[in-house]
Amino acid sequence: MKILVPLKRVPDPDTKIRIQSDGSGIDLDGVKFAVNPFDAIALEEALRIEEKLGEIEIVVVSIGGDECVEQLRVGLAMGADRAVLVKTSESSDSLAIAKILAAVYQREQPDFVLMGKQAIDDDSNQAGQMLAALLGVGQATFVSKLELIENNTKARCGRETDAGIETVTVKLPAILTTDLRLNEPRYVSLPGIMKAKKKPLEEIELASLGVAAVSRTKVLKLEAPPKRKAGVRVKTVDELVDKLKHDAKVI
């Protein structure tokens, strides 16, 4: 069995994010980077499946510049077997990423793809769904519980929805996108980091995949959300109701 796990390089969630003064993007000066936390959850799930079933090949893939090697090494250090970096200097939107991943999928022919439901940098939550559509395979998104059934030909997935946990069964191959509560990723152990240095990491040029992955969306401007204004203290319930009626006009 082979599982493909895409890993995206994103600013570390603990980093203070600053917007460039002209609003054109994030000021990356001095910023630490990490594996997108939802992707780390996906990789953790793949590793747990491997621990259960044994003999699985886990391939991690990232798309971007040379710097993404760092995140691939994290994946290898956690326990992935092999890494692929698709090199491109272009920034790609969700559809472009989905197209590139589709090409990687064709090349690798995995049994299924486990990936984060979204990346914490742009929060698009589209690449997984688009990838499934491009490949014409099934999908289960927001997976918070995963079980391989019927001799590993299907995945029974618990999906987090507003109404509660929805259980769906998808035929493999499929695209499974992971939610926060699926698992807690393991630590990257020091021996793991040392072993990762010896694991194969293949770099391929985007052009060699033969995909036209042009972004169709453009970020016009980034703005910090407005600062929250100080609240008002009320003394009585009547005062509260009055304010809700006349000031906030919500009731």
């Binding site: 760092e70 994290v74 250090a77 630590y187 990257v188 152990s189 020091l190 980091i193 990762a196 240095k197």
Partner: peptide, 14 residues
Amino acid sequence: SAEQRLMAATAEKF
């Protein structure tokens, strides 16, 4: 190196 930083990051998370 990236590896050296990663080791410190593991300790930090721990």
